[in-house]
Design a protein around this nucleic acid. Structure first.
Lengths: 247, 247
DNA sequence: CGTGCTTTTGAAAATCATCAAGTATAGTGG
DNA sequence: CCACTATACTTGATGATTTTCAAAAGCACG
């Protein structure tokens, strides 16, 4: 259980929309469904935001007026219980589209884990845009479908895996996420921009359990810890076995 | 942990597609995005299946050749670990669309909890159909978005709620699901077509814990149990408090 | 009216949480 | 540049919720 010290819901800076045409995040995002000059129409809808680490830019329950697209950095998405218990439902990095929901209010909060860049779209206006571009709708459905599959996998983790299995699964997921970390180097160095508390709230465990489990994985030679935020997978096969539940 | 006694993956009977126009499930399903005579084109793609209780009609990992739409009964969707641990990711009832996934293989298995009717659609052919009917794609995106929200709520439950809170959440969800149970009578009688084991695997608990928790809720006057499968909510407010985490 | 399965109940065990404290790290100000 | 403070991470001891193991009670079905 983590009691979250609230930081003001403020966006650091709002810059005029940059050209989507040159956006580094585009290859990873739904925006690549649009090409040619149509991309300029999309750019006209986008507002570039800089969100400092620790800042919340989506608040659960608030009217859902915008969609977001992460273009740099990392954000955590989470839900809270009244007493402060928190469940992180996912981490958003470059290319992640946020705000899919039929409801009129956000179903989760989003807070930057490190300095983050996002594009903000007015919900009704982007909705209108999508109606004109079926390819975009198609891409969004693909995104939503993939997230659904990921969510089911996470339910399996939360409902049925042991602490060890959860941590192994997490590390492997971080590693295979080619986009999210620094280079997926030959020796698989993983960057963990989020705090241990965040990992705990993502895996349904406590900070202490995360720490103990990682220490043990290290002492068993399955991983190396260059620093708390830099992990090297030493025995991928063993980790994969663990993650798959063949402990 | 539940070791699943495998039942053959067989569909009981295959009937010629009935007219979607008169389908009772249509108001609850994505099919209502299509109207007029276009519905006949859709009907031409559908195959009606009867799935007996206990039969599996989607097997995790199998090539995803079909979409399904539940038109009657209830099915459980689940993922397994190699040693038999099971996580039920959801229950599908009338109107539920199954098979959304970009991958070429199913991400979960589906087994009928009670005698169930489903429509089966060839994946590529329905995909083609959808391309012709943006309204359908739109509806699918809405469905996927809603399921995503539900999945996040379930992650909160699995990761952070106590056994009591989970069971209370489950009962309330069953109740508000106007479609899934028999009548949402004035006194909120809930039908639970699934076994205790299924509830356990859905809530990330064991059968024993489910049983004990429900017994306790009954002894505290929060619920009544007419039979193992028929529950009455006696103190809705208290249950809602529990489910929301204000224990 | 057994037979088999589901549900319930009981006792013991275990994983993980909680409480507590020490260590490392980073950022701040002198 | 270094000490100082705050925060994050780690480690240890204890405890509790939930699991596991075991068995009885209910029910459905042949």
């Amino acid at each position: 259980m983590t009691h979250v010290r609230a930081r003001p819901v403020v966006v650091e800076a709002v810059r005029p929309a940059e050209l989507c045409a040159t956006c580094e995040a585009r290859p990873f995002s739904v925006c690549n469904a649009i090409d040619g000059h149509d991309i300029e129409r999309l750019a006209a809808l986008a507002v570039n935001l800089t969100v400092d680490a620790g800042r919340t830019f989506i608040e659960e329950g608030d009217p859902a007026e915008s969609f977001f697209n992460v273009t740099a950095g990392t954000a955590k998405l989470f839900k809270l219980l009244p007493d402060g218990r928190r469940q992180i439902t996912g981490f958003a990095s470059i290319g992640t589209f946020l705000g899919l929901a039929v409801s009129s209010s956000y179903a989760f909060s989003a807070e930057a884990v490190e300095d983050t860049q996002v594009c903000r779209f007015s919900r009704p206006r982007l909705r209108q845009f999508i109606d004109d571009f079926p390819a975009m709708e198609r891409r969004l459905l693909d995104v939503a479908s993939n997230e659904l599959v990921a969510a089911q996998e996470q339910m399996l983790l939360l409902g049925r895996k042991t602490a060890r299995e959860r941590v192994a699964s997490f590390l492997l997921a971080r590693e295979s996420c080619a986009v999210c970390g620094i280079p997926t180097s030959p020796e698989a160095r993983i960057r963990l921009p989020m705090a241990r508390t965040d990992i705990a709230d993502y895996l349904g465990l406590t900070v202490e359990t995360i720490s103990r489990t990682m220490t043990r994985l290290r002492s068993e030679g399955l991983i190396d810890m260059l620093s708390p935020t830099e992990i090297v997978l030493r025995n991928r096969a063993a980790l994969e076995g663990l993650a798959a539940g063949m402990s």
